[in-house]
Write a protein that binds this DNA or RNA. Structure first.
Lengths: 205, 205, 205, 205
DNA sequence: GATGAATGAGGTTTCATTCAT
DNA sequence: AATGAATGAAACCTCATTCAT
């Protein structure tokens, strides 16, 4: 009885739903956005949405998974292209700097991501998962570069790699937050400023 | 001719409600926290809460006002005690650094504050107010110090004061966010690291 | 401990409360008017109101009692002054006609009275009481006059007194309703028209 | 691809809700009747009711619209069938007279209608709309007949048509009010009595 | 697979009444 | 007697989810 549709079709449909949900969650926040908002935005019926996701929360989680994974993949892939630690670090700063000007979709993702990050502080389990992932991926991404740079003599040896990594991600999250809430925030300039401070320091003998 | 309870009493009651609300909003988020949560937490009846505040939203706004104002007051007051720009800047870094270890209440406030900041990006009007206030108070606090330091020859003259200010607040928001979501985040160490980077740079001739 | 106040004082206070309640009930309706409205309007505290009346409903009922009784008293007293049935009937028509222009208070009373009358249709018991009273007082007031007039040969004998009476009160209620909802309703003119129709008919031999 | 239920189905559902609401409003009054009353009475869930109407007030207004429109349609349609003004006027009197004995539903409608009419006196805007409609439709209905009758020489020319019209509607509202609150009110007899008074007078040369 | 009407738990807010002072 | 803060039942309305078609 059920028309059997291709996996391709299903994937497309899911993407449509996720895109609608992202826009709605960004616009109103997860709690305030309703399934009807998503229906209105995506043009997909309520029943159909529940065919693809079993709850509003699941949509949210999938949305966040999706973005972390794609971000991770992109980063890991590109970083390996550079040979020196300095270039790698520079690349990371520039990568984030060049996100600006932000597309609406990127702003939406960031808003939703930050909101979710905050929300995670309320859920022991979620929090542990996120921190674990943060350590394993984000923190390590830069400590690896730092260690590489220090081993190669590019960077001063007396700086704790995890401090640089912590500083980087702390700063990027702060910058994205400010960018999202303030159109006039000098996102690029400030990232460049921090980049110069950090690199200057690291290269000091 | 009596239950005209003292203003003192009313103030105290309001504080109790706000304290309960803060805990609940921090624990669940503004949307997810219910009036019944606040009732359960504070032991104050639903009706009484509505005698003091006319809506859940009003409680939220009052909570945020309160914290901004107290923060503003504290900062402005203390900064003026120092005579050199360097000392002032150092004081600011140290002030934020020494917030750690965070009391539960401070974490709650920060969580709620960050959530609200994010939320504000969804409300044109609120957003404008917050950015205005940010510029007038937070940004200016540091650009003033910078200009003072540059005029006095303490700081190198070629750094844009607003970049330092932007960097500072970007960083502090990021650090508080990370601290709130990650118990193990080396908050103090990283703040000291950034402080050293910034001051080192500024004092370079 | 309780200051013992005079009966006079109490009566005055009750009147004040009733006056405030009348205005509020007229303005919003019994259900929609709140005790706080009455507090605001009368300037008397909530506690005090509950010292004099044991519920909002009791205030309402007292208000209606008050007006029926005063109306009854006025009518009965004045009617007896006239000697002929025709004069009495004319007096009644004129009495109602000359209520216009209506003071705000009168309009309020009428609104509340009509609302109550309607409301009474929902309460078996109340309904019976009101109909009883209506028969005993209002209906009888005019059937008595009619019978007097027919006995005296003033009025044609073949008209059922109760029909004239029914017509009169039906009409007056309708006219007051229209007057209350429509500023431009030609209240006096229409009453005079009906009066002329009725008297003309009754005096026909 | 289905539960796009037919328009027919929706209309029926709406009617069911309105019927339930009418009964509840009549029984308790608009304010006192609760959505849960309507749920209990109609057997339709709260959510479903809010799918069809966006507020309790909207249900009320629709109910009143419905009845005015159907009344208007019925009247306008039938009146035109008669050729003489006298017949038309007689038809109107008879139409209202023959509503009795009142079905429960008719009594409900009248109660709700009268309550609403009274209520309208509290809302400037509503009041204007209702009076406008009253003038345009109800008043005009009879002044037209009067003018027709006077032009044709059926009715005496010295009677102001608007007085007859005013008298008619004043009387009918009064009669319906009395009928609704008093089972024993001789509705038919009194209407016939008024009809005879009015027609007698109009036909006098 | 798609649709959207139906459900009802649960949220916010109001307000008559009580009662300590 | 007077006051008004406190109470909590009960009102209106929303919305995630289900399910008949």
């Amino acid at each position: 009885m059920s028309p059997i549709v291709s996996e391709e079709y299903k994937r497309k449909k899911k993407k449509e739903i996720l895109a609608g949900a992202l826009a709605c969650f960004a616009k109103k926040g997860f709690q305030a956005a309703t399934i009807d908002d998503i229906v209105a935005y995506s043009g997909i019926s309520k029943g159909a949405i529940y065919n693809y996701f079993k709850s509003k929360e699941e949509i949210y989680l999938e949305l966040l998974n999706e973005q972390t994974e794609s971000a991770n993949a992109r980063l890991a892939e590109n970083i390996s292209k550079f040979s020196s630690a300095e270039e790698k670090l520079e690349y990371l700063f520039d990568l984030y700097r060049d996100m600006s000007p932000f597309s609406q979709e990127r702003k939406d993702r960031i808003t939703v991501q930050l909101e979710f990050t905050l929300h995670s502080s309320r859920d022991e389990n979620l929090n542990r998962i996120l921190n674990e992932r943060g350590k394993k991926f984000f923190l390590k991404l830069i400590t690896d570069i730092m260690e590489e740079g220090q081993a190669a003599g590019e960077f001063r040896p007396d700086t704790d790699p995890s401090h640089v990594s912590g500083l980087f991600w702390t700063f990027m999250d702060g910058a994205m937050l400010h960018r999202v809430i303030n159109e006039e925030y000098p996102y690029k300039t400030i990232i460049d400023y921090v980049k110069s401070l950090v690199l200057q320091d690291l290269k000091q003998e």
